[in-house]
Design a protein around this nucleic acid. Structure first.
Lengths: 258, 258
DNA sequence: AAATTAGACTTGTTATAACAAGTTAGCAAA
DNA sequence: TTTGCTAACTTGTTATAACAAGTCTAATTT
């Protein structure tokens, strides 16, 4: 098995990034400079850069160049059932804005109908802007009576925030967290490249008296967000802030998002 | 902004996959067939296929062709603090084998030293094979006295399994779940392409008397694995994994391992 | 019949070439 | 001074071409 040229080059550039020769935000050599330095064609140079892009080490800006990616993530804490709690994220120095794309009553896909135990519900599609930059697409179904009752509020903020503000207590959330890659539509909405890594939080919220009332998924940029959870065998969950390791200071965060 | 040819083609092929024209496991048209059908060069045809690969819709096999990816994921349940519980995964019809790459005493990186509150510990690197196929790389640091005491067992199975079998009760786990992309080393270990999406479970395990005893991360193929968690506002944690009705008490849980 | 080989597929790597399009700095005109 | 435009960068798209290497089938040889 021969070791491809493009890989040899991208590994070498990777080393320079990791050992600090190129620092966070620095510009890497241009395609032409790589062609000259390693005596390769443009295809190979571009492939080397593409390898780095796919590893999330650099980002490319047309007309400008290739830059070392800064990677520090905003943490969604799952310690409380209120996901995307504005105050929680705000503690990390981020302003969250909700931009509603869709809010309408729809006939449910069978999977969702089975979960919510009804055939019609409100479908919400929202884009979450963090410091004005798109970071999350949220698609949530909510029981029709709740959707109708709180429409005005739901259009302006996250679902759980609205429910809590109106005195509805979520008793339980079943959730899965997984990885996907951006399709064309999502890549446009989140302003990332096709195939960009995404972290998906799929959830169903229950109340003791109504059963499942909300089901949906939040699709966030995998390079900017992560989830934290604290599991306590005793059953008493730690509701205070955890996972401070991954949290970042306000000033740094602002830079990383801009 | 002009819509690139390669994107137009990959979107068209994507439609065929989603609408069922090409079903799971089917072979897509070869590069030459795409060149002919869409009257484009090989570069454009390959780029179109590359777009699909990056979205995780297809996998490419050299000499064979391009195949529609089957995506069903194995779920790691975080309902109990025993991650990677063999019995839990086994319930999903998967056989797990542990292959230890590294087991040695090392001086800790500062971040880890701060967490474990010591400067030397055992470093374990393991590859988890699911039905014989590599699916997860686990890198875990464990306190020296524990590493030494249970070395033989730790070499053969997952860390938490060993600890529980020896009567050590994990009282708390702090964890974060995030997304990354495979670097060259990881891509070789997990037999995936460079940049393949990965889901990372980073955890610190505590006991009431010793404090932090284990810290590490499990890096799994993002296309094959996901995590599930159930959050209960009442504070009584549901120990049954999602989709299972039986609730297991802590004491019974330990027995069920043996 | 079994083993080998050749040929026709497949994808992977790499080169050269041309044009399109976004960015920026500096120069020239208003 | 300010505005506007050009020129020189940057990355993006696409074509043609050649060879390497993995896979499979079928014909050939043992």
């Amino acid at each position: 098995m021969t070791f491809p040229l493009h890989l040899a080059i991208s590994e070498q550039l990777r080393d320079r990034i990791l050992n600090g020769s190129y620092r966070s935000g620095d510009r890497l050599p241009s395609e032409h400079q790589i062609m000259a330095e390693f005596a390769v064609s443009r295809i190979t140079a571009r492939r080397a850069i593409s390898n780095l892009t796919q590893q999330g080490l650099v980002t490319v800006q047309k007309g400008k160049g290739v830059f070392v990616a800064t990677q520090q993530k905003v943490t969604y804490s799952l310690s409380s059932p209120l996901t995307f709690l504005e105050t929680d994220i705000a503690r990390q120095g981020v302003t969250v804005t909700v931009q509603t794309l869709v809010f309408e009553s729809v006939t449910l896909p069978i999977e969702v109908a089975a979960i919510l135990k009804c055939s019609i519900a409100y479908l919400q599609k929202k884009v979450l802007l963090f410091n004005g930059i798109p970071g999350c697409v949220d698609v949530t179904y909510i029981l029709p009576e709740l959707g109708k009752a709180y429409e005005a509020e739901l259009l302006e903020q996250m679902t759980f925030t609205t429910l809590e503000r109106n005195g509805m207590t979520i008793d339980k959330i079943d959730a899965t967290i997984e990885c996907t890659q951006a399709d064309y539509e999502t890549s446009e909405q989140l302003e990332v490249t096709l195939g960009h890594p995404l972290i998906v939080y799929r959830h169903t919220a229950y109340t003791d008296d109504r059963g499942a009332i909300v089901h949906g998924e939040s699709i966030s940029r995998g390079d900017r967000f992560c989830y934290s959870v604290s599991i306590d065998r005793n059953g008493s969950r730690d509701l205070s802030s955890i996972g401070t390791k991954n949290r970042i200071k306000d000033s740094e965060l602002l830079e990383s998002l801009c």
